[in-house]
Amino acid sequence: MFEARLIQSSILKKVLDAVKDLLNEATFECSDSGIQVQAMDNAHVSLVALNLRSDGFDKYRCDRNLSMGMSIATMSKILKCAGPEDTVTLRAADNPDTVAFIFESSNKEKLAEYEMKLINMDQEHLGIPETFYSCVVKMSSHEFARIVRDLSQFGENITIACTKEGVKFTAIGDSGSANVKLAQTADASEENDAVIIEMQESVKLSFSCRYLTCFVKATPLCSQVQLSISNDVPLVCEYKIGDIGQIRYYLAPKIDD
């Protein structure tokens, strides 16, 4: 039997909001160590890797490893039915055809159960090599979301250029161009708003605004975002999920024709 309980359904609601624009369906791999999801978007341009550790759940039991193919749209619909203060429990049998989502109100007076059919999926699982990145930028997730939103109005790509001095985001389009420069924070006491750059080598790469716009849907999960960039490899955009895990988005760069 598989059972995982979270006191705050809001975490799972935010996780679904962070993936539903990219993924139609995904396999949830459940084991003793927790729940892992790795899935590409339909166009195979980006990859989402979600990790929720078992010790981050309020209750977690997984008697045998399970691979559950889930419709993200259906799961998102179900999670919209949970109140923000509700406790959520995911439950499945050992060889499941369905998974149950059980929502319990904080006063325990309302109990709602939603059962979702699982789907058979034949997903390709990609091996992500251990990569040493030339630049790692930590910054406010809200600032990053704002930059993506603002610059997306001017072009279909955002070029990220990172040097020792700071990080520069640029978009160029038919109507004009836009750029935002962020200097590395000198005094990092305002931790959440600080811009911290670890740089071995300067980098400059372009990425599709469409995908970056999907990634920043994870902003409510964490006040900080970490961007890992190396020339000619996918960008990694990482948000921590409280004490329970993290979501990483990998995005293949755009290259000059």
């Binding site: 980006s46 390709e124 699982h125 990609l126 090599p129 490899v233 996918p234 293949a252 755009k254 000059d256």
Partner: peptide
Amino acid sequence: AKSQRNIMAYFKVR
């Protein structure tokens, strides 16, 4: 013009 690479060009199928 820039063209979009595929993520599978970087990560191998396991």
